[in-house]
Design a protein around this nucleic acid. Structure first.
Length: 250
DNA sequence: CCATTAAATTCAA
DNA sequence: TTGAATTTAATGG
């Protein structure tokens, strides 16, 4: 209750129409990748494109599911709110990724929320149209299945990391995850996150993250300039969590 | 967890 | 581009 008003929910969705799949250059998008194989791409024509400003929430927990979002551009955090109002960040998603995909099938309402972390462009496909396209195009369906399998694998790894690793290990794991997924830019992680966001992903508090960052800085493993975090000694960081054989790939 | 101060980011002129 | 306003980081109780 006390934390409930921290986020101002802005549910305005600007709908624009000039982002066709045909002229899209996003090769990591499953729709784009399969576009040439899709025999009857009606759903592509019916898609909606929407722009989100930084900090804008475009999926609200508990809202009805009508379709799936694909990220055309930008970065998004996907989270779930716990009983005490604490946010658990499930994952960070970048261009080409799918959001709200568990809404397929039986789920009627979103069990997650999603907020844009930067200017983000989303493609929104209706669930029914997509389902039809998946049934008609085996390759497209198979690619989607691979995506689901991958997501499941990662989420299982995350359960393990939260239940079996120490706080310090989880913070390091988070740093490595961001590093793997978003890489470096001039010596700093190419995604600016607040300490609270690191905490929400690692399943800790902001203070813990701040203190662990300070320690890691003193130990010469990372560097920090405000929100910009640099990985100084990747190998040593990896070594600390190697016994938990952290998950590979994004 | 909360309060305080320092530091960084944002925003609008 | 700057600096005032706001937000975030860092510490210590």
């Amino acid at each position: 209750m006390p934390l409930s008003s921290k986020i101002s929910i802005n549910n305005t969705r600007k709908t624009i129409t000039d982002f066709s799949c045909i002229s899209c250059g996003n090769t990591s998008c499953l729709v784009k990748k399969n576009l040439k194989n899709i025999v009857n791409p009606v759903f592509v024509e019916k898609k909606k494109t929407l722009k989100c400003k930084k900090g804008q929430q475009f999926i609200i927990e508990g809202a009805a599911v009508n379709g799936l979002f694909f990220i055309l551009k930008g970065v998004v955090k996907v989270f779930r709110t716990g009983i005490n109002g604490r946010e658990q960040i499930v994952r960070f998603a970048k261009e080409g990724e799918i959001i709200g995909h568990r809404g397929f099938g039986t789920e009627e309402y979103y069990s997650i929320g999603a907020i844009a972390l930067q200017e983000t462009v989303l493609c929104y496909f209706s669930k029914d149209d997509l389902q039809k396209a998946l049934l008609e195009n085996p390759k497209f369906g198979y690619d989607m299945m691979l995506f689901y399998a991958n997501e499941l694998n990662k989420s299982e790894s995350k359960v393990k990391s939260i239940s079996q690793m120490t706080v310090r290990e989880r913070v390091i794991d988070t740093l490595l995850y961001i590093h793997r997924k978003f890489g470096d830019l001039r010596g700093f992680l190419n995604l600016p996150l607040s300490r609270k966001e690191y905490a929400d992903y690692a399943g800790t508090t902001e203070e813990q993250v701040i203190r662990i960052f300070s320690l890691l800085k003193k130990e010469g493993l990372i560097s920090a300039k405000g929100k910009k975090i640099g990985i100084v000694d990747l190998q040593k960081l990896k070594n600390e969590i190697s016994e938990h054989n952290f998950y590979l790939d994004t």
